[in-house]
Amino acid sequence: MNPIISVRGLRKNYKKTEAVKGIDFDVEEGEIFGFLGPNGAGKSTTINMICTMINPTSGSITINGYDVASQKARVRESIGIIFQENTLDEKLTAYENLMLHCRFYRVPKSERQRRIEEVLEIVDLQAEIKQRVDTFSGGMKRRLEIARGLLHYPKVLFLDEPTVGLDPQTRAHLWEYILRLKEEQGITMFLTTHYLDEAEISSRVAIMDAGSIIALDTPDALKRQLGGDMIELATEDNALAQQEITKQSTPESMTEHEGTLFIRTDDSNRFISQLLPTLTPAVTSLNIRRPTLNDVFLSFTGRSISATKGDG
């Protein structure tokens, strides 16, 4: 597979701070690329540079074979962007918003009507075509924005916090649309989100912190890299249990949080079958799970992503 986005030595300095410290990565054609990072990690700066919105201090970006610095118009034609905030004109109808987009992106006149109907069908908004956008619900607006982003048949769709501010049901629906898009249209997606369970659908995930990319792999590989399973254990005397566990084995990590011990271990079978029965304090609850992206994020950045909610 060929990289559709290629970033080399990308750097951005603001007066005194280095927002992005020379990063390299590729996004493969047809993948969902999850881009995660705590607040102020340089995520937004990086995306804005890729989307031609701000100029890098140094380094190069290629999208769909076009150079972002010298072929801005070509790059802009190749990408669709769903911004975190609403960028529809709410005083206009859905149709008018889409038609304007066709004009901005020079969609051939003979194609416009057909494409507008096509993208509205993808997001299930055919019936609302003549309605003004200010009558739409939050979820409908998001869907319309996604439809608009698809009108010019972009090679890459950027989704910046696409589900922020939506209720869980609408979120789930939106992901159905997005996944269907990937399967049916094969569009490459560049995704940022604060909901790490949503990032699980990514083909690969990059974690950015303090201006650098500190991890880049498939979600499974990242979780494997953490190793083993997460055991959540609560006993009648956690302090004593901790002592006894460390005496008999060396777990990868063990932390206590709100009355529960979080133990990461390579061999959860041995832990359950041999070590657990020997504990003196009675076990009140036990849960074994695979590490999640949240555990990965926590271990790489030392912070939980939910604590960094907001624009990174």
């Binding site: 919105m53 070509r74 990408i79 962007i81 911004f83 609403n86 960028t87 529809l88 901005f104 992106y105």
Partner: peptide, 10 residues
């Protein structure tokens, strides 16, 4: 926010 839609277009 509409200015963004215009500014990222070709």
């Amino acid at each position: 926010g509409y200015m963004k839609e215009i500014l990222v277009s070709p």
